[in-house]
C-alpha cells in the first residue's frame, strides 16, 4: 500500500534525474511504479499538486523586475476583474485578499513581471487599458530587494527521521 504522506515527503526533494524516476521513488517508499504514477495523477487532478515540472528562478532568467500591483475594487467586481487580470501572460498571479482598513484599502493583488521596470509599466498600461480599470485606485509596489527566496514548510520526513525544509509552495 502506498503511504501518501511518504510520497509527498519524498517528492518534495524533487524527482531523481534517472531513466525511470517513478520506479526509484516507488522503491524508496515500498510501493510500485504504477501506483506512484497513479497517485501523482490523482494529486494533480485534486489540485494538491498545482504544477509538476521545473520551477525557475526568474531573476536569473532575465526577468529582473517585478511589481505587485494592488487594487481597491468594489467587492461585487473583484471576481470579474481578477479574472481579467489573470488572462495576461505577464501576470503571474491574481489573488483576492482582505482589506486591512484603514491602513490598507486594497483587495485585489496581481504580480507583474518584466525584463525591467519600464517593461513592467508597459504591461500594466496594457492591462489597465484592456480591463478598463483606469479609474480604480491602485498602487504599484516594485520590489527593491529579495532577502529570502526559498520555500519553507516543515514536513516530518518519515523516511530519514529528519525534519526537512521543503518547497511546498513558492507563493502564498
Amino acid at each position: 500500500m502506498l503511504n501518501e504522506r511518504q510520497l509527498i515527503t519524498v517528492l518534495q526533494h524533487g524527482l531523481p534525474l534517472i531513466s525511470r524516476p517513478y520506479a526509484a521513488i516507488a522503491e524508496q517508499i515500498g510501493s510500485t511504479e504504477q501506483e506512484v504514477m497513479e497517485y501523482i495523477t490523482a494529486m494533480q487532478a485534486r489540485g494538491d499538486i498545482k504544477r509538476f515540472g521545473v520551477v525557475v528562478r526568474h531573476r536569473n532568467l532575465g526577468y529582473q523586475a517585478n511589481a505587485m500591483v494592488v487594487w481597491n475594487i468594489p467587492d461585487d467586481r473583484v471576481d470579474e476583474l481578477g479574472g481579467c487580470f489573470g488572462k495576461f501572460e505577464f501576470v503571474n498571479l491574481s489573488y483576492r485578499r482582505p482589506r486591512r482598513l484603514p491602513d490598507w484599502p486594497y483587495n485585489l493583488f496581481c504580480m507583474i513581471h518584466g525584463h525591467d521596470r519600464d517593461d513592467v509599466l508597459r504591461n500594466l498600461a496594457q492591462m489597465i487599458d484592456s480591463c478598463h480599470v483606469g479609474d480604480m485606485p491602485h498602487a504599484i509596489l516594485f520590489s527593491t530587494h529579495c532577502y529570502k527566496q526559498r520555500g519553507a514548510v516543515y514536513i516530518h520526513d518519515q523516511i530519514n527521521g529528519n525534519d526537512h525544509l521543503t518547497n511546498k509552495s513558492d507563493i502564498a
Partner: peptide
Amino acid sequence: GYISRFGPMYNAEKL
C-alpha cells in the same frame, strides 16, 4: 541556479 527545483509544486493549504 536557473532552475530551483524539478518536481511538484504542492498546494500547501490543500495538504
